[in-house]
C-alpha cells in the first residue's frame, strides 16, 4: 500500500518534470512543441557526455539545460517563429525538428543504447518500505521546479509579461509588452526544461536516439488536460500518473501504458478545459 502510494507520488513527479517545459510553451505560445521528445533525448545524451568525460553526474543536468536552451533558441528563430498562426502545422514542423535532432544525435553517437552514471544509487527506508532514493529525489526536484517556475512567473517582470501574454496576447502587445521576446524566452526555457527532464530520467532508463518519443505523448496529453496552469499540471500528473500506476498494478503494464492517453481523451471529451478551473 505504502509502496503503491510512493509509486504514485514519484510517477506523478516524473511526469510533472517531463511535462512542465511543454506546458510553458503551450501556455504562452498556444503551440504544441512535438520536438519536446527530441529535446529530452538531447538532455539524455548530455548526461551521457557528462559520464563520458568523467565529471560528477549532477553536472549533466545543467549541461542538458544549456544544450536544450541553445537548440530551442535556434529552433524558435529559424522555424517556429513563422508558424505562430498555423498551430497544426507547428505540430508537424516540430515533429520534423525532432526527427532532425534524433538523426544528428545518431550521426554523432550511434544508434545504440548508452548509459549515464546515475547521480545517486541505492534505497532509503521510508515508512517501513525501502524505496529508490533517486525517485524520491526526483519528487523533491519536481516540487522545487514547480516552486521555481511559479516564482519566476509571479515574481519577475518577465514573468508578469509572460502571464499577460498567456491571458490575452493582443492586449499585452497593446500595452507595449514585447510578445516576440516573451515567446523566444519561453520557447528557450521550455526547451531547456525538456532537456533537463531528459537528463533526469536517464538513471531510470537507457539513452538511445528515440528515448524521448515514448514520453512525448504522455507529456502532451497532460498538457492538454492542464490548460496553461502549473497547478493544474500538478493535479493532472497525480490523477493520471496515479491511474497509470493503479491500472498497471491491476491490469498489467501494457494497459497501464495507454492509461494516460485514453483517460486524457475522455476527460477532454467531458470537460474540454480539463483540470484547469477557468
Amino acid at each position: 500500500m505504502i509502496a503503491t502510494i510512493l509509486d504514485i507520488i514519484t510517477t506523478a513527479a516524473i511526469l510533472y518534470i517531463v511535462a512542465s517545459g511543454l506546458l510553458l510553451v503551450f501556455g504562452v505560445m498556444k503551440l504544441i512543441n512535438f520536438a519536446h521528445g527530441g529535446l529530452m533525448t538531447l538532455g539524455g545524451y548530455a548526461a551521457v557526455i557528462a559520464t563520458a568525460i568523467g565529471v560528477n553526474p549532477w553536472i549533466g543536468i545543467p549541461l542538458a539545460a544549456i544544450f536544450g536552451a541553445i537548440v530551442g533558441l535556434g529552433m524558435e528563430r529559424i522555424v517556429v517563429r513563422s508558424l505562430y498562426n498555423r498551430p497544426l502545422d507547428a505540430i508537424l514542423a516540430t515533429w520534423g525538428l525532432s526527427i532532425i535532432i534524433g538523426q544528428i544525435i545518431t550521426l554523432v553517437f550511434d544508434r545504440g543504447v548508452h548509459f549515464a552514471e546515475p547521480p545517486i544509487r541505492g534505497v532509503v527506508s521510508l515508512l517501513g518500505e525501502s524505496y529508490s532514493t533517486y525517485r524520491l529525489v526526483l519528487t523533491v526536484l519536481a516540487l522545487l521546479l514547480g516552486l521555481g517556475l511559479t516564482l519566476i512567473l509571479k515574481g519577475t517582470s518577465l514573468g508578469l509579461s509572460t502571464r499577460a501574454v498567456i491571458m490575452n496576447e493582443d492586449l499585452a502587445r497593446g500595452l507595449g509588452i514585447n510578445s516576440g521576446l516573451v515567446r523566444t524566452v519561453t520557447f528557450t526555457l521550455g526547451s531547456g526544461l525538456a532537456a533537463v527532464a531528459g537528463a533526469l530520467i536517464t538513471p531510470l532508463s537507457s539513452v538511445y536516439p528515440d528515448m524521448g518519443t515514448a514520453w512525448l505523448i504522455s507529456a502532451f496529453m497532460l498538457v492538454l488536460v492542464s490548460g496553461s496552469s502549473l497547478y493544474s499540471l500538478a493535479i493532472a500528473s497525480v490523477v493520471l500518473g496515479g491511474a497509470q500506476v493503479i491500472v498497471s498494478g491491476y491490469f498489467g503494464a501494457v494497459l497501464g501504458g495507454m492509461t494516460i492517453a485514453a483517460l486524457a481523451a475522455v476527460i477532454l471529451r467531458i470537460r474540454p478545459q480539463g483540470f484547469s478551473y477557468e
Binding site: L204, S206, A253, V254
Partner: peptide, 13 residues
C-alpha cells in the same frame, strides 16, 4: 509478467 519490448517503465512489475 510481461512488458512490451519498447517499454521503459517497469515500476508496476
Amino acid at each position: 509478467e510481461y512488458n512490451p519490448m519498447d517499454a521503459n517503465d517497469w515500476t508496476a512489475i
